[in-house]
């Protein structure tokens, strides 16, 4: 990449002036973050690829408007979440596919084959936990889902969450409390259904 050695700030400035190579370098720097978030939001590879692609494209289109009042990664996070919300609205609801019954490409069902190895029960338990928490997460209000992902999985501070979601810190704290309580209820319900 010819942009190697440039800081994020420099790359943003160049991108704002239409420098595609600079934006590609930015994209390379931030893709892992976008990819991880997309996985958490959608839970399947088909949707996540579309979501990350759309996020990068929209960021490219909108970057001349980026005013650096927040971190670039926070701005990108907002774009990705808004893209997710838009897709969800358009589709009514994104396809919800349980993580424990799909292949890596998110399309083909995986055969459930009994595994006689000693680690199998633990793996099965972990798989059931993953399935229950995915179901619980998907049942939450979108903003609660976003706030939990940011806080519990990505380690954002309350101030950073406030900046991304454009809400005061007090509201972040309130929403976190409600989101956690809702998640707990939904998770225990989902886990109970599997017993």
């Amino acid at each position: 990449m010819t942009e190697a050695g440039s800081t994020e700030e420099e790359l943003v400035l160049k991108s704002q002036n239409g420098d595609r190579a600079a934006f590609e370098a930015l994209m390379t720097m931030t893709n892992a973050m976008c990819w991880a978030l997309a996985w958490r939001l959608t839970g399947n590879q088909g949707d996540m690829e579309d979501l990350v692609q759309e996020t990068h494209l929209k960021a490219w289109i909108a970057i001349p408007k980026f005013r650096a009042q927040s971190k670039f990664s926070s701005w990108l996070h907002s774009i990705e979440f808004n893209c997710y919300m838009d897709r969800k609205r358009k589709q009514g609801k994104l396809r919800e596919v349980s993580l424990d019954c799909v292949s890596g490409d998110g399309e083909r069902p995986v055969m459930q084959i009994a595994d006689p190895s000693p680690g199998a029960p633990a793996q099965m338990e972990a798989s059931e936990r993953a399935s229950s928490i995915r179901k619980a997460l998907d049942s939450l209000r979108p903003e609660y889902k976003q706030i939990l992902i940011m806080r519990e999985q990505e380690g954002f501070s309350q101030e950073e969450i406030g900046a991304v979601m454009h809400i005061p810190k007090g509201t972040v704290s309130t929403w976190l409390t409600r989101a956690r309580a809702d998640l707990r209820e939904a998770y225990l319900k989902a886990a109970g259904e599997k017993l």
């Binding site: 990068h56 490219w60 928490i133 956690r180 998640l183």
Partner: peptide
């Protein structure tokens, strides 16, 4: 119960690897 739910959330499986040509495909669109 909350601890159990939050632990499950933090231990959610990680994302599958990024396809090798993914960024190239996006760059072509850009």
């Amino acid at each position: 119960g909350l601890k159990q739910a939050l632990n499950a959330l933090r231990e959610m499986p990680g994302a599958p690897p990024v396809p090798p040509d993914f960024l190239e495909r996006v760059a072509a669109k850009i």
